[in-house]
């Protein structure tokens, strides 16, 4: 007999909103960033402003991205338990054991573990890694950005990076991290589609509507 699934509100508006703002801004940052690193289109007239626009859009998208992350950061403390920063650290309760089981599962070596409503432990860990890469992009990005005015505010905020790395190295890190994000996002989308099909929990829909569908016995309150 089929059991009726229960509808729970998982992703609150700020989580969904910042998720899609991040998706958009990362898309724009990656395309313009790739152009900055590798100007594949050439202008034929001096009055054109291709690189100029690319950089302008890159820096504007960078601001959008940072503000969106700050909102999400705030929500990691103000939002529901699924949005909490704690979800990124699968160290409590049975989470470490489940994490290992989940990894084995993806390698076809174990049965699928049953999860609660929010991020699975592996998803949490992946988002932690994504967050670290975001930070790397933001710090190296703003450090490079500060070079246009070495006595400005950004240089006093991010200039310390130049004591550790040379400018070309910062550029290289910034460049390579873009590729790392590309892989993680590819995997992320694949897993999202895959788990959606597998669990029938409405995972894909949840990032649009906020609701997931779970078995009635799954605990949804603390």
């Amino acid at each position: 007999m089929k059991k009726l699934l229960k509808r729970v509100y998982v992703w609150e508006f700020p989580v969904r909103f910042t998720h899609w703002v991040n998706v958009l801004s990362i898309l724009v940052l990656s395309v313009t960033g790739y152009y900055i690193g590798n100007p594949f289109m050439h202008a034929y007239k001096e009055s054109q402003y291709v690189m100029g626009w690319m950089r302008f859009i890159h820096f504007t998208a960078a601001y959008v991205f940072v503000v969106s992350l700050l909102i999400r950061l705030y929500w990691a403390f103000a939002g529901n338990k699924y949005a909490s920063w704690k979800a990124l650290f699968p160290v409590t309760g049975d989470k470490p054991a489940k994490l290992i089981q989940q990894m084995l599962y993806y390698a076809f070596l174990a049965e699928k573990p049953r999860f609660g409503v929010g991020h699975s432990p592996l998803a949490g860990l992946t988002y932690l890694l994504i967050l670290v890469l975001y930070a790397a992009e933001i710090f190296t990005g703003f450090a490079m950005y500060s070079l246009y005015n070495p006595s400005g505010l950004y240089n006093s905020m991010f200039g310390w990076l130049f004591l550790i790395f040379t400018t070309p190295t910062l550029r290289l890190i910034h460049h390579i991290v873009m590729w790392l994000l590309v892989y993680l996002i590819l995997i992320h989308i694949y897993v999202a589609l895959y788990v959606d099909k597998l669990e029938k929990s409405g995972l894909m829909g949840s990032i649009f509507t906020g609701h997931k569908f779970v078995y009635p016995e799954v605990k949804t309150k603390d």
């Binding site: 100007p39 289109m41 050439h42 202008a43 034929y44 007239k45 001096e46 009055s47 054109q48 402003y49 291709v50 690189m51 100029g52 690319m54």
Partner: peptide
């Protein structure tokens, strides 16, 4: 620099 901004490399 004008060529840089224009995208002429």
């Amino acid at each position: 620099r004008a060529h840089y901004d224009a995208g002429q490399f």
